[in-house]
Simulated scan of single mutants.
Amino acid sequence: MSEKPEIVQLGAEVLRQKALPIDDFTCAKFHVLLSDLQNAMLESNGVGIAAPQLGVSRQIIIVASRPTARYPKAPDMAPVAMVNPRFRIVDDNVVKDWEGCLSVPGIRALVPRYRSVRVDYQDAHGRPGRMILEDFPARVFQHEYDHLQGLVYLDRVETNQDIISESEFFKRIAA
């Protein structure tokens, strides 16, 4: 990857492809990609990121819920790199809440997501991991997981009336 990887934007083909699994956890390119993902997410005030957003169609995401300028009310959790993730629904209650995306700047939308999921994944060394995620971190995971399936959050919106400009979103949360 380049020194400062660019986050690809809606319209880029890679965002519509199903990502391939990682099978070599010793490859230097894989570890550089993990580092690039972390750096790009932090520099962009993101709370999660997926490899396709850096133009790499591989099954890697980072979930890193924390308060940021983009999500001031997000709960704190340590960043977790999840390779080849899969999930099961723990709580089938669906909640609509606001989402944005580093690959779709300038807008926010109300998106329905499962309230709680159990995630099985591999860590950066290929070891198995499992987490139960609830509420905002579960939302972040599902959003990033969609990127691995060739979907963006706007594909989940129930009505176009649930899409607003980011400036309007900030007026609403500041009120």
Score class of each variant (00 low, 15 high):
4 K>F: 15
4 K>D: 06
4 K>Q: 11
5 P>N: 12
8 V>K: 13
9 Q>I: 09
9 Q>W: 14
13 E>A: 08
14 V>A: 05
14 V>M: 06
15 L>H: 01
19 A>F: 03
21 P>W: 12
23 D>W: 12
24 D>F: 09
25 F>E: 02
26 T>V: 08
27 C>S: 07
27 C>N: 08
30 F>L: 13
31 H>K: 14
32 V>T: 12
36 D>P: 06
36 D>W: 13
37 L>T: 07
41 M>E: 01
42 L>D: 08
44 S>T: 07
45 N>M: 04
47 V>M: 07
48 G>W: 08
54 L>R: 07
55 G>D: 03
57 S>M: 03
59 Q>R: 15
62 I>L: 13
62 I>D: 01
63 V>Y: 10
66 R>I: 07
68 T>M: 02
69 A>E: 06
71 Y>L: 04
72 P>S: 01
74 A>D: 09
77 M>L: 12
79 P>S: 09
80 V>G: 02
84 N>R: 06
84 N>P: 13
85 P>F: 14
90 V>A: 11
91 D>Q: 03
92 D>Q: 04
92 D>W: 05
92 D>N: 09
95 V>L: 14
96 K>G: 12
96 K>H: 12
99 E>I: 01
100 G>N: 00
100 G>H: 00
101 C>N: 00
101 C>W: 00
104 V>L: 00
104 V>R: 00
105 P>S: 05
107 I>Q: 00
111 V>Q: 01
113 R>H: 06
114 Y>E: 11
116 S>Q: 15
117 V>P: 04
121 Y>P: 01
125 H>E: 14
127 R>T: 01
127 R>Y: 04
128 P>I: 04
130 R>P: 00
131 M>N: 08
138 A>P: 01
139 R>N: 05
142 Q>R: 04
143 H>E: 15
144 E>N: 12
146 D>V: 12
147 H>I: 15
147 H>L: 14
148 L>A: 13
151 L>A: 12
153 Y>F: 12
155 D>F: 00
155 D>E: 04
156 R>N: 05
157 V>D: 03
158 E>V: 10
159 T>W: 05
160 N>D: 12
163 I>Y: 01
164 I>C: 03
166 E>F: 02
166 E>D: 14
167 S>W: 04
167 S>Q: 11
168 E>M: 08
169 F>M: 10
175 A>N: 10
